[in-house]
Structure formats: C-alpha cells, structure tokens
Amino acid sequence: MYTTELQKVSALDNSLSADPPELVAAFEARVAADAFIEPKDWMPQAYRRTLVRQISQHAHSEIVGTLPEGNWITRAPSLRRKAVLLAKVQDECGHGLYLYCAAETLGTSREQMIEALHSGKAKYSTIFNYPTLTWADMGAIGWLVDGAAIMNQVPLQRTSYGPYARAMVRICKEESFHQRQGYEIMMTLANGSAAQKRMAQDALNRWWWPSIMMFGPPDDNSPNSAQSMRWRIKRESNDDLRQRFIDVTVPQALALGLTLPDPELKWNEARDHYDYGPIDWEEFYAVVRGEGQVAKERMSARVKAWEDGAWVREAAAAHAVKKAKRNAA
C-alpha cells in the first residue's frame, strides 16, 4: 500500500549537497544503465534521503494499514473469511517488516523511523485514515486499495535500489491474492441479499475516490517526479497509473452490477480511456495534513502498541544479556 510523494524533497535539500561531482556523474551513469545500487555503494545524499523517506513511508503505510482491516478480523462472517483476512493482515505486517529492513540498509534504524511516524514527522498513505464501517469494506479495500497499491508497486520491482527492489518482488508475489479475495467478497455481497448489496454499493461509494487519490497529486503538481524517474525510484507518473487503474477497475465494478460514484465517468473512444470527474484535492491534502476522520485513532493505536510493547522488548533483551553472561562465566 503506497502513496507517492506525500513529502517533498525541498529544493534546499538538493542544492546544499556537497557530493563530489565526479561521483555523482558516475552514479547517474550507473542508474541510467539500469544497474542496481547496493547498500555499500556510494550514492548522493539526496538519493539516500529520498529513498529513506519513500521506503519508510511505504512501510508505515503497511503497518498503519493493518488497522482498518484488523478492525474486522474478530467479526469475519465465516471461518474461511476469518483465516483469509488474518493471513492478509499478517502479510501487511510482514511487508512493513521487509520495507523497514530495506530502509535500514540506508543507515536509519527501524526505531528512528517508528519514532518519526509516532511524532507525526513521517507520513503514511491517506487511505488508512478512513474508517471501516461494514464488512463490505473488507471487500472494497482488497479490491480497490490493494488493486491501486499493486499498480503502484509492480513497477517498483525494477527500482534502482537493490534492497527496495527485492522487497518489492517479495511483496508483489505475496499480494497477488489480496485483491482477488477482496473482489470475491464484493461478488458474494453484490449477488447476495438486498441488505448485502446495499452494503457493497455503500462501500464502493466511500472507497472509490480515496482509492484513486492513492496515486498521489496530479503530475503538474509533482515537482520531484523528474528526478525520481531518472533515479528509477519512481517508474511511472501518478496520472498514468491512475488512468490505468480506472480503466481496469470500471469494468470490474460493472461486472458486479454496482455503480461508481462519479457522474462524469464515461468511456472516451478517441482517447481509448475512461474520462473521470474532478478529484477533490482539498480533501486529499487535508487527510495528508492529518485531518482524516480516524487519523487520531490510527496513530494512538500504533503508539499504544509500541509503548505497551516496551517492557516485552526490554525483557527479552535483558534475558539475552543475562544468558550471555551466564554462558561466559
């Protein structure tokens, strides 16, 4: 689960760089030649900073993203659904773990990244600050949110930073069932009772716009894209990915017999794409600023888990020290 460029590299960041020009040139040439950059390789400071920010933001999104779906695990309506949802949320937890490890190879500890999240310095995907109100939200999230995430993530399997690319390969492989299980839930509901169909339509209405906002701001308002594209940290533009997502998702919605909450949505023969209505970027930026409906709940749940876990982490570390001393004696 992923949103591009919630935080910008400031122009100041880049201009202050004291990186030796000959090293920068060699680095740029390697990246341009599709070589992978590995942890001990020389890299420009801005590349390192941008990567830490992007990978940790991605990791935070996975971890905070366990909460909206975690909200329904204990209420899943069948044993099969319960096992599937539990396994899916567990995957997200694992994906956060892989990504934190990838970011750690750049010299920032997981603890530092978690502190940045808890203090509000680091961002995570806006989508997780919306509440999950009914069981149909499990369907809509798997189908739309994971669908959007997959579209964002697949190109990153070829990103320039080796540990990040390898983490993305593993993540994409594991996520292949996430979207399918979501769509299956939607199909069951859409073909179910009137109450279930209403639930499915309501979930689609609420998750549609936030999902297409997941691709980030429009390209003309995305000033760092050129650099990120050149560095292969970002591989396709926000608007291109968004359009592709809409084009593949609309027929899926129609197959469910559901309607999309966008009166301007229609197929444009000339463009060979769907046209869609204006996106409420005010809403998007408000959620980025932390004004999402359940932003406070999400953050307090994460902080509580971390703080409640402090004595556990400390106990295990203390035991390891004692045991090492006993073994040495």
Partner: peptide, 14 residues
C-alpha cells in the same frame, strides 16, 4: 486474532 496489528514488535505479531 485480537492481537493482530497490536503486538510488541512486528515479528511477534507475525
């Protein structure tokens, strides 16, 4: 399953 997403470390959660 009530623990999912709330454990002391990601590894313990898994």
């Amino acid at each position: 399953s009530e623990w999912c997403g709330h454990a002391a470390a990601l590894e313990v959660d898994l």
